[in-house]
Simulated assay, not measured.
Amino acid sequence: MSKSSPSLQRPSWNWKRNWQLHLMLVPAVLLILLFAYLPMGGLVMAFQNYKPWLGFTTSDWVGLDNFRKLFDQPDSLQIIWNTLVIAVLKIVAGLVVPFVFALLLNEVRRTVFKRTIQTIVYLPHFLSWVILGGILIDMLSVEGGMVNRALQTIFGIKPIFFLGDGDWFRATVVISHVWKEFGFSTIVFLAALSGINPALYEAGVVDGANRWKQTLYITIPALMPITIVLATLSLGNILNAGFDQIFNLYNTMVYDKGDIIDTFVYRTAMVQGEMGFGTAVGMFKSLIGMVLIIISYRLAYVWGNYRIF
């Protein structure tokens, strides 16, 4: 019997020849095991009345009581609702603003000006919310804040309690998040724009299409596949409303509109010491997020023909 073609044979790993490449993976694998998989053993606290001085082995086992407590508390539904509202607003605004900005930036013909604008809008992404939180607290202060002084001087508007009123707090969180991240998110849309065949625009010019019609019938349809992919993949983050941002901006006056699952878990587990209950809330969020990620990847494959494995 003749030997099978080399292309049909199962590839074999040559460990001796590629040992350097595999060695380079060791630190990354160790970090993932240490910080991603090893801590999963702590999920047992969700089923215990965990006490640090008793440990995992001797803390009282309570079964699903911590999960029942999550839904029995009057604030639980409001916290889940706050998380969904803020996360959805961030996702929608985080798609629309970079989409529109990429279209506008694509019309700029002066390369120097275009690159300057790109650099300016990218910079906030690299600043932490610890820094930006302090800046926003000073800028939005009722007394002496730059924004309120400008509104009062120019428009005669009374000072607005941006970080003390629940409705204004949500708007402030969403707008500041978009301001920080839209420049970095624009990179994806600019990359998609660079892949559009120039012949399409040339054909449009021949047919008498102006810049607006070229944008409407060529540019926007070309961006829709990547937009659909990003929108569907964002479903996996529907319960991630941004702990670091809200933790640095919120206060007791906006708990009714600004408290989210992550900040609630922090206060419950780390401040009040109810680590079992805090772990149960975090586990509930993680399970819902896992289901949403699976659904979002399936939708991205069906609607946008996108898959990672």
Rank of each mutant, 00 (worst) to 15 (best):
R109W: 08
A150P: 03
Q118V: 11
G134I: 02
F113M: 12
G164N: 11
L140P: 00
L140H: 01
F113R: 10
G145E: 02
G134D: 10
L132T: 08
R115K: 14
Q118K: 07
M146N: 06
H125I: 00
T153N: 10
I154C: 06
E143T: 00
K114S: 13
V108T: 10
L132S: 04
R149H: 06
L127V: 13
R109D: 12
W129M: 00
R149S: 05
I137C: 00
I120E: 09
I157A: 15
I135G: 01
T111I: 14
T111V: 13
G164R: 02
T116D: 03
R149K: 10
Y122G: 06
D138H: 11
G164T: 01
T119D: 07
S141I: 00
G144W: 00
G164I: 02
V130L: 15
I135R: 04
V108Q: 09
W129S: 02
I120W: 04
I137T: 07
K114H: 11
M139C: 06
G164Q: 05
R115I: 03
Q152P: 01
T111Q: 09
V130P: 11
R115S: 14
G145F: 00
L151A: 07
M139V: 06
L151D: 02
G166D: 09
D138A: 10
D138R: 13
D165W: 05
F162H: 09
G156C: 05
G156M: 08
R149I: 01
Y122P: 10
F126C: 13
G133Y: 04
N106D: 14
I160P: 09
L123H: 08
E107F: 14
I157T: 14
R115Q: 09
P124W: 06
E143N: 09
G133E: 01
I135H: 04
S141H: 02
I157R: 15
G144L: 01
S128M: 12
G166A: 12
T116M: 12
S128F: 03
V142W: 06
F113W: 13
I154H: 07
L140A: 03
L123A: 14
L127Q: 03
K114R: 14
I154M: 06
I137D: 00
I157P: 07
L127S: 14
A150H: 04
G164C: 02
M139Y: 05
T119L: 13
T116R: 07
I131D: 05
R149E: 05
V112W: 15
D165I: 05
R110N: 14
I117L: 15
V121K: 09
V130Y: 09
I160E: 08
V112F: 12
T111M: 14
D165S: 07
G145P: 00
P124K: 05
I137G: 00
S141E: 03
N106L: 09
V147K: 01
R109L: 11
I120F: 12
F113P: 04
I154W: 13
I154G: 07
Y122H: 09
D138I: 10
L127P: 01
G164A: 04
D138W: 07
M146A: 15
T119V: 11
L151T: 01
L136K: 02
I160W: 06
I157N: 09
F161P: 05
H125G: 03
V112C: 08
Q118C: 06
F155I: 08
G166R: 08
T111G: 02
G164S: 06
E107V: 13
R110L: 12
K158G: 15
H125Y: 11
N106P: 11
I154R: 10
S128R: 08
V112Q: 12
R149D: 01
N148G: 12
F155V: 10
N106G: 15
R115F: 03
